[in-house]
Design a protein around this nucleic acid. Sequence first.
DNA 1: GTAACTGTTTATGAAG
DNA 2: CTTCATAAACAGTTAC
Length: 681
Amino acid sequence: MRTSPRRPLILRRRKLPLPLRDAPTTDQVVANYQPERVQKEASSHESISERTDPSPQKFPAGIKIVNHPTMSNTQVVIIPKHADIQSIIEALTAKGKESGTSGPNKFILISCSGSPRSVCSSASQHCSQTDHANTDEDDAEGSEEDASVAPCSSSTSWQESFSERPPYSYMAMIQFAINSTEGKRMTLKEIYTWIEDHFPYFKHVAKPGWKNSIRHNLSLHDMFVRETAANGKISFWTIHPDANRCLTLDQVFKPLDPGSPTPTQHCEPHQKRFIPELQKGTIASSYVKERRMKPLLPRVSSYLVPIQFPLNPSLLLQPSTKVTQSPSQEPSISSAELGKSSKRVRIAPKASVTGDEPLPFQPVAFVRDEDPFISVKQEEAFNVMNENDPFIAVKQEEEVFTTMREETFFTTVKQEETFPNIEEEDLFTTVESPTRKLADTLLEKHPSISRRKQRLILPCLEEPVLVFPECNNSDSGLASDFSFLQQTQPFEPVLAVCCPQEEGGAFKTPIKHKIGKLPTLSTPSKPVSTVSQAGSSEFYRTGPPTREESLLDFSPVQGPQESMLTPFKDSLGFLGFTGTPFKDTPLFDSPRELLNTKSPEVISGPLTSSPTSAPYSAKPCSKELHVGSSGNRSLTEGLVLDTMNDSLSKILLDISFTGLEDDDEFGVDNVSWSQLIPELR
DNA sequence: GTAACTGTTTATGAAG
DNA sequence: CTTCATAAACAGTTAC
């Protein structure tokens, strides 16, 4: 019987329990608080000390409460770093209960300290392979290793440990590996080597199956894209630029505060795998390492909540500024065109598996950036589009139609139900399609054709063209993050074969093709939908804009212009913190994507931004992260207190401070609530 | 021809 | 229910 591994710490979501109201520490800490009143009005920005609300709750000095810019009944509470969180939560809970459904009953708690940790600097720091210097004072403090020696100085602690399994998921480690290279690509073997070098556990302890897991993850996750070199012999694994947060090993290490009382908090014991014989004598050192390590990786679908604070109230009176992309971020497809009209998507009926009538299908061509490498996805697309190729024709007949009938259409229906926040699993894992059986049947009919796809590699230099003139795909950026990788948008296929036909070519190992994949499958049971591939990311969102698509809002704290905002609706479940917070909210999955949504000018602008006005564009690398965002944005952990459900959840927040250049008044630090609130763990 | 490697996919169990 | 790790089957490619 196999034993399931411990989940990586960094990938964990946890729902924090509400502290007990009669916790022993409460009174002691509360005694230090200044009596303050809870604000109740929907003022845009205020300090507790300025409030006149008669609410009896007491808050410590320095606490700030602002209304969430887009979420009704939600307030953002900036808490001094060393405040008693428990008391604050109690007070907020009381306040929320007092307010009921008509007032603020959900609170996003963020920590306040003097040293904001800019994502931009972090990203720029870590996206540069050659720049391993830790500008973060914490990192510098915690890294006694020479950064010039180790590619990731902080990783040395892991190098020292042969017995501990790194607290990172395979997916994270692969990202580390790939992002550690200049070209942001690696061969499989290089990935192996990198992981072995940086995590000796895998070199000395782990079973050989870990490599299988690496391969599995590479294939499984859409963010990993296999590119084939021009000669077609070398496959490089890359991270899709829109999905790449440029995570590096450096980036996820952050030493804890020296005064952190519970070092082990940051790496749960069960996350590690000690080899019994090695465990002796290493526990103490491992604790030290735990102290120094702070896994900061948000999951791909982490609960990234954009919050924007207008620090300069006068800015609120400035004309509305819409989120726009900087020219450099403009997609290859005209965003304006994309945003003009909505692309109507025909929702095809779910066809019977046993249906004999092949559904009309026309492959879709792609638009792609110039790339020295030929995307394997492209290759497949080209192949499918080679209708005149007799070999391909057979494949189309077998796989394409099969896919279209069973899986794509099913996906269509399902997607319609859950759009826009559909995750891959929503589309795929629940599909109980007998396509494999059907495919097997087909294979019996055509025994010469393997179920596994064999595609002709056609190194088409002439790129296909996207033919969705009316496709609006005005991407908010929100939807263009990971969802686009996992979502598929059905549409009425348009034939646009631009790749010249070529005869011959080598057979190639079939590849996954979720991004821009054509309705072909190597394993028929997994649905594939027709998505227009493009070098830009618009093709990820070819569906019509839905009401939910407009929910993303970059508007600042609600104020006089609140009416202009597009608040989240509780009715849509966006504030249903009882379950997975913001699970159903089309939030940014990637901090990078979120940060890139705005140009610096936009950030300086105070007012609302419509998602539809911010067509998303593919950015090649997160090195641009700091370009597209000024220094007044920060990622931080936060807590979501839902007084309606007595739930407390941990989230990742992206905070922008309107009108600030490099710093923020609040000084919201990227502090871990796990550190801040040990009692909540 | 065969082994090793690589890539894709499915299945399963643990943990949350 | 979701996410992740693990195992495994299967197939294509490549080196010997």
